[in-house]
Amino acid sequence: MEMTADQRASDWLAKGDLRPTRQRIALARLLVGDGQDRHVTAESLFALTGGEGEKVSLATVYNTLRAFCDAGLMNEIVVDGSRSYFDTRIDDHPHFYWEDRGALTDAPADQIEIARLPLAPDGTEISRVDVVIRLRKTR
């Protein structure tokens, strides 16, 4: 029996122990409803809500994406000081950032090697390493 988008969304929220409000379910359905991984900005997710007929403000989208990250359901990938992407795939993996089109995609993890990381300062630990490889067209 095929899982519906609403079932996927509800199950995903339950993994993060998040209450399934109408707005969370609507956004979760857009993010994971078809079972595919997504890289979205708050603005691109907000634009998708209009196409689905959902009434969700941009501020709610930002707050909900932050709640999804805090619950461990997504990772935020910062590509520069003013642009963040939110990734539904939460395992460690590198990304390509396509500068010409402002898109973030997964890069092949088996083709990258990190030989050594610096020691974390006293009283801290490394929680995650983000690898973003910026691409542009050759001239």
Rank of each mutant, 00 (worst) to 15 (best):
I126L: 11
Y85I: 08
D106G: 10
D17P: 12
T60I: 05
T49Y: 02
T4G: 03
A109H: 08
V132Y: 06
Y62Q: 14
V32C: 07
Y85Q: 11
A28T: 08
W98V: 14
D6L: 12
I133S: 06
M74P: 09
R116A: 08
V79K: 06
R136K: 14
G51M: 03
R24W: 05
R128L: 04
T60N: 10
G72R: 05
V61I: 12
L104R: 09
I126Y: 01
R8D: 00
L65I: 01
A9P: 00
A115G: 13
Q7K: 00
D110G: 10
I77V: 15
H95A: 11
Q36V: 09
S57D: 04
G81F: 05
T138N: 06
D91C: 09
I77M: 05
E43A: 08
G35D: 05
C69T: 07
A120S: 04
E43N: 13
G16P: 00
L13S: 02
Q36C: 10
R139C: 01
R116Y: 00
M1N: 13
V32T: 06
A120K: 00
K15E: 12
N75G: 03
T60Y: 07
A14H: 13
T21N: 03
G123H: 06
L31W: 04
Q23R: 14
A71W: 00
R19C: 05
L58W: 10
R22P: 06
F46K: 14
D34T: 03
M3Q: 14
G102R: 11
Q7N: 07
I25S: 13
A28E: 07
R83G: 07
N75M: 04
Y97V: 10
D80C: 14
M3F: 07
K55M: 09
A47D: 09
R8A: 03
D87W: 10
T49Q: 02
F46C: 06
R29T: 15
R136I: 01
D34C: 06
T88Y: 01
E54Q: 12
R136G: 02
I126K: 05
G81S: 11
R116N: 05
E113G: 13
K55Y: 04
G53M: 04
V132Q: 04
R83A: 05
G50K: 15
R19P: 09
L45Q: 02
D70Q: 14
S10H: 12
V132D: 02
V56D: 00
R89M: 11
L135D: 01
P118A: 04
L45A: 07
D17G: 11
T138H: 05
S57L: 03
T124S: 04
R89I: 07
D37R: 03
A107M: 05
A67S: 11
P118H: 01
A14Y: 09
T105N: 02
L45K: 02
H39K: 14
E43H: 14
A115K: 08
A9W: 09
L45H: 03
I133T: 10
L18E: 03
G53C: 07
M1G: 15
P121W: 07
P20V: 08
R38K: 13
P121Y: 03
L117F: 09
E2I: 15
A47E: 12
A42M: 08
R22M: 12
E54F: 11
I133H: 04
A103F: 09
M1D: 12
T88E: 09
